[in-house]
Design a protein around this nucleic acid. Structure first.
Lengths: 220, 220
DNA sequence: TTTAAAGTGTAACAGTTGTTACAGCTTCAA
DNA sequence: TTGAAGCTGTAACAACTGTTACACTTTAAA
């Protein structure tokens, strides 16, 4: 799976003292073996944990956007950074290693100090959390729509906003069904009906919006 | 509606120069009349906008947790602060005033400066966004469960974790149905069946978990 | 080119949820 | 006490989605 968090890619360098990072930074590094549960649901989250090498899995929504499956997280990426400052600062899920991993741990107080002294660090932290929030918001909007046609409409209108009324998706029908959290034949049926009604047209992965007005009516 | 963001309650004082806030803070205040659309979906979000007085509505998920209805936001609260630092920093929804409002606007650069110079400001900002993320995560988990019994199980097990196996909810059945995003009679039917099966017991707003094992099996 | 694997279109049927309606029960105020 | 309004339990039916199965097409590898 490709890394969707480029803002953390150079973190390793930073933590090694490069890029003007303070040499007095307080941190610790923990190593874990394969198939270890390194965080449990409900564990206190009092430090910023960054997966430096290896990969772990959780049972949250995946980065693909797929529904409540197993999420694979590859280094380098922070683990649940948003929960460090939340009121109920506990891990929402179990985190299990898939191989040998290296986890950088920066205590909360130290994170606060770094934020105030290292603008780059702060920006990375903020941007990562902001992107995560945006991702969650989009998913939530999509899931809030109950009918399959409504989900399709929401998704296609979003795409149409970024591109024209004809665009190519990088998902096949099966992946799209997973993304929507519906069964594949059900999605196919809904698509067929929408084509039948002259609302859209589909050629393989190329989608064309024919009637934007009717598409919007499906959002309700 | 009660304010769920106490961390922003004293912001007015801070912005007035109290609490050691720098007198050179760059900001502007805008006033808007009733029923004005002050932000549109897709608008660039290049400043931290804080609703100082009045109330607005958006079409996001409500603070009650209810589904994709109209959210009423009362002052004082920031408007979509998470999007300030996100990659696609655009408003996800329209924001419409319900009465005369006062909006404090702090440019992004100034926010960054404040974050580095004012630890209190930074903590408030981080905590607010963290709580929002946690809220969204919980909602997403709940929505990812497709069956009504599954939602009930998830919700009750969460409650049971905080409290004992018998607890009192502050929602009636109608509100609970809204929270789950299902029809009220459907919820009642599912609850009846779960009582019939000896999994739970319900007396008005008091819920008792009788068979935690069976409850967990419903999560799949 | 051939062949296996993956992806797509479709249908019948089962299962769950939504809609609508109504009766009984609570609560709260006049 | 007595309404009136809101809340809850329930039922019949409609609507939608999931499941399973299979034929067909496309893709990619041998």
């Amino acid at each position: 799976m490709k890394n969707i968090d480029p803002e953390w890619n150079n973190f390793r360098n930073i933590s090694n003292g490069g890029d003007g990072f303070p040499p007095d930074m307080q941190y610790s590094i923990k190593f874990h073996g394969k198939n270890e549960v390194i965080f449990r649901q409900g564990d206190l989250c009092d430090a910023l944990n960054i997966l430096m090498t290896g990969s772990v899995k959780t049972e949250m929504i995946t980065e693909n956007g797929n529904l409540l499956g197993i999420e694979i997280i590859n280094a380098p990426r922070p683990l649940a950074p948003a929960f460090l400052f939340s009121g109920n600062n506990r891990f929402p899920v179990d985190v299990t290693t898939l191989e040998e991993v290296e986890v950088l741990r920066i205590p909360k107080d130290e994170v606060i100090r770094l934020m105030t002294t290292q603008p780059d660090f702060m920006q990375q932290f903020l941007t990562h959390n902001a992107n995560r929030t945006q991702f969650l918001t989009n998913r939530l909007q999509l899931l809030s729509i109950k009918t399959i046609k409504g989900k399709i409409a929401h998704f296609l209108l979003e795409q149409a906003g970024e591109q024209g009324d004809t665009f190519t998706l990088n998902r096949n029908q099966t992946e799209l069904a997973d993304f929507f959290g519906v069964a594949r034949p059900s999605l196919a049926r809904s698509l067929s009906e929408m084509i039948e009604e002259g609302i859209i047209d589909v050629n393989k992965k190329e989608y064309t919006i024919l009637d934007k007005k009717k598409l919007r009516e499906l959002l309700v």
